[in-house]
Design a protein around this nucleic acid. Sequence first.
RNA 1: CGGGGUGUAGCGCAGUUGGUAGCGCGCUACGUUCGGGACGUAGAGGCCGCAAGUUCGAGUCUUGUCACCCCGACCA
Length: 490
Amino acid sequence: MAKSFTTREENYAQWYNDIVKKADLAENSAVRGCMVIKPYGYAIWEKMQSALDKMFKDTGHVNAYFPLFIPKSFFSREAHHVEGFAKECAVITHYRLKNDPNGGGVIVDPEAKLEEELIVRPTSETIIWDTYKNWIQSYRDLPILCNQWANVVRWEMRTRLFLRTAEFLWQEGHTAHATREEALVETAKMLDVYADFAEKFMAMPVVKGVKSPNERFAGADDTYCIEALMQDGKALQAGTSHFLGQNFAKAFDVKFLNKENQLEYVWATSWGVSTRLIGALIMTHSDDNGLVLPPALAPIQVVIVPIYKNEEQLKEISAKIEPLVQKLKTKNITVKYDDDSKRSGWKFNEYELKGVPVRIAIGPRDLENNQAEVARRDTLEKMTLHFDSLEVEIEKLLKDIQQNLYNKSLKFREENTRTADTWEEFIDILDHQAGFVYAHWDGTPETEELIKEKAKATIRCIPFNNPQEEGKCILTGNPSKQRVLFARSY
RNA sequence: CGGGGUGUAGCGCAGUUGGUAGCGCGCUACGUUCGGGACGUAGAGGCCGCAAGUUCGAGUCUUGUCACCCCGACCA
């Protein structure tokens, strides 16, 4: 493994790539900026999907699917939206190829030019609001609480596996409401869902807050977000929930008749999290031995490695293990019994690289004493347990690992959250300690922009329930009412 | 689009003053091993990114070209 994350040196990127590669999560594809998610990486995504999907259903949402292609004209209807996304859109101009009359290959048939170009969705607000227009006439049609699991394309200049790729997988919720208040409640509710998911499943503490106007989603009135701190001290936006006001309703002319028989524009929200969360998971927990997965999202929670010299011993161990595997399975614990012919030492390393939370090793010595060696991935501790107690102990251990990972990350975040009162202090922290910095800001977009330019740090969010305190802006010295959360970020 | 770098076996790399291609990992077979990435022996695997030029001869020199990577610009 490249280098300890605690050094926070510039080769953190190298270290990150190493983990992605060695844990067999993903690789760059032949298509520039696009990523191949390998089976093990995808299995983590599936765990995330199923947990999130259940949370969405529990809050009254349903799944639907909308087109991959969006007519160009839809985009220009919401001015801010088009401005925000125009620079990174993939555009479809033709619908046919033909044999090249001058040579072997095929060329785009110039006669097959589309009358109106199609955009490959970078996000689906426009196509969905064009659709919602037909679904909504009266207040009785509201609310609409839809989610879609989809892929989107944003033609980024520079990409990094999971964190920023040209195509990525995500879910996007799009809701329509009769009142502003109801839409605001929805926006906050879904942010809470994301925060719960991050903390309970990913074991990753997050700061909930609202984005400054500069950092707001293109087309939103407000953007709420969860911000997490990675082990190199950089912040990562892990999820967003947008209050879209009536912007899209107005752009797509979506009105409804209220109880008083008056026409009103519909209120909207949208919210999403993506495969970027896998990147967040890697950068939150991994150590120098590789990936560390929280049990709640680990595709394999327990791996059992037999240690044997010959077929006969293997048979003996397998017979002993079989009932344990069954028992763990009935407790909904995902177990892999790896009786592959690879050497045990090789397997130990392999499963550590892959972040499997618990490893059980069992050999002739253990058979004799009716015991097993149990190793936990988070602390790398090994213990010898009575074989008959394993079923109970493993279950406890998984819970304990989940909690320990959360506690560890929370402690890391707390130790790396600081306050700065002067510009010098602010820069010093960013340069030498990184992490989150609470500092006063005069509240103007111009100052925010200047700080970004000079310090390469952005306002990650203005936390909810942020304590109000008088102070002076670290850059301009103008009066400020509160500290906001700054960091350098991904 | 700027600045830098790299293209040689599946992967990671070496290749001297130009002389016709090698190492490590991995792979295959057999044997010995097996409690923290084992070892031995024998194998398989190459249009040296592509094209043109210089030369008796090019992985190596020249020119062109393509691709990828890193640093910026970009990133709701």
